[in-house]
């Protein structure tokens, strides 16, 4: 882990030349590995990738996401998940196998604007991502405050083995649900804790690239509680 070389890049920057594996957000031209987005490049082992600092969420199978119900047809809901594609949640997933579009009214379960914790069941280039809530801890989110951060900053918010998010949760007693797409729901019984948690999340979104962020967050949470 120690021999990772990091660099700030913009599209077109040559990260390195040589026998490296081109991974995410890079383009191999001849023997040059070129960044395709604004971000931080990483060279490790034999691979090169760029962690983007901006851009939309790109769905990946098995990702946990939070979606906002946008609309519905007679057979499925459409969710906004901050991607270039809408998420499709089939009605069968919610009503069960005996779903009958003639009898069951979709709005009785999920209305426009509702928040849904879901997982991406299937996605490829030819179809819109298929969403499922048929799993433990998935389904409609009843309460909480929605925060939107950049999807590229989600790993920073979680931290190494969840260290950052645990820091915030322990200090504020808030329950934080993080979607990979950058939608986050915070619920807390104490309004003060809620506000503090929201501030911390916004601070991470703004300063994700700053070193020693965990300590800064600890400091902020600590100083507020006094």
């Amino acid at each position: 882990m120690d021999d990772i070389k990091r660099k700030y890049v913009i599209p077109g920057d040559v990260i390195t030349t040589g026998p490296y594996r081109a991974e995410e957000n890079v383009n191999l031209v001849g023997d040059k590995i070129i960044a395709t987005t604004v971000g931080i490049s990483e060279i490790y082992d034999s691979g090169v990738r760029v962690i983007p600092l901006t851009g939309m969420y790109v769905p990946r199978i098995d990702d946990f996401i939070i979606g906002i119900v946008k609309s519905h047809t007679s057979l499925s809901w459409e969710l906004d998940m901050r991607s270039c594609y809408p998420g499709i949640l089939p009605a069968q997933d919610v009503f069960g196998r005996d779903f009958n579009p003639k009898v069951d009214e979709l709005t009785s379960r999920l209305k426009k604007g509702d928040l849904v914790a879901a997982r991406i069941a299937n996605f490829d280039r030819s179809r819109d991502p298929l969403i499922t809530i048929g799993d433990r801890d998935l389904g409609k989110i009843e309460e909480g405050e929605l925060v939107k951060i950049s999807p590229s900053k989600v790993p920073r918010l979680i931290g190494k083995r969840g260290s950052m998010i645990q820091t915030i949760e322990n200090a504020t007693k808030a329950l934080i649900t993080i979607g990979q797409n950058g939608y986050i729901v915070v619920s807390c019984e104490e309004p003060e804790g809620l506000l503090k948690a929201l501030d911390a999340i916004r601070m991470i979104d703004e300063q994700a690239h700053v070193p020693n962020l965990t300590e800064k967050i600890q400091e902020m949470l600590g100083s507020n509680s006094e």
Binding site: P11, G12, V29, T36, T37, V38, P52, L53, T54, G55
Partner: peptide, 11 residues
């Protein structure tokens, strides 16, 4: 375009 995070081969 780069600010929007759209992948580009080059500027």
């Amino acid at each position: 375009l780069a600010d929007a995070g759209i992948p580009m081969r080059d500027m």
